[in-house]
Design a protein around this nucleic acid. Structure first.
Lengths: 99, 99
DNA sequence: CCTATAGTTCGATTGTTGTCGAACTATTGG
DNA sequence: CCAATAGTTCGACAACAATCGAACTATAGG
């Protein structure tokens, strides 16, 4: 229930962002978030266990790619698209186009 | 002495490319290649041993980011910029702008 | 031919990351 | 209050990746 803290735009690190993106599971999450706009974890869990997904969301959150909004029992995730675009112009567009 | 084989444009995989870029040493190499145009390994070796550098060049080569041209005893490396742009438009521009 | 130079290959080690089950926490509904 | 739901945390393990020294290969120059 404690709201997560998301890293500030200015502290985002390109290496961390690239590392976060350099995983097929997380790329898939990113793709879905892009097309769905916002989604809770359950909607993104394929066949993988919840603990794995939790891990991937943590990586995406800590690198600054994803924002997690807590609403009751659910965690709604969304891409921090505007902020990423501001910090790394063109990066997400290129990645999203590639997947 | 055997010329390397570089992966074909069409087989380039976004995950491999992102993984290759998600390392500070390799990002540094990419940055230098971008500004220098072409360089042999020695010019890019900072304080790191040659075996480490050899490893990083291999990763960059196999992911399709770098082309290595052998000329005598030297290996001249360059970014496969046009091909990358064709396959993943905007990606390298975004990464290069970020570093 | 001998040596220097440029880089690779090998093998060991260490550190990092992904995966997953099990136990836990928090919220909502009955 | 009890149970269901949504997700986290913990711990273990396996797979992978970075690092580096040492030995190797190949070319060029003297």
């Amino acid at each position: 229930m404690p709201a997560y803290d998301h890293p500030d735009l200015t502290t985002l690190d390109i290496v961390s962002v690239l590392r976060a993106l350099a995983d097929p599971v997380r790329l898939d999450i990113v793709k879905r978030l892009h097309s769905m706009g916002e989604a809770n974890c359950a909607a993104l869990v394929g066949k993988r266990p919840k603990s794995s997904m939790s891990h991937h969301f943590q990586v995406l959150r800590e690198s600054g790619i994803v924002h997690t909004r807590i609403e009751g029992v659910q965690h709604h995730n969304s891409l921090r698209r505007q902020e990423l675009d501001e910090r790394f112009p063109g990066l997400m567009a290129a990645v999203l186009a590639a997947i």
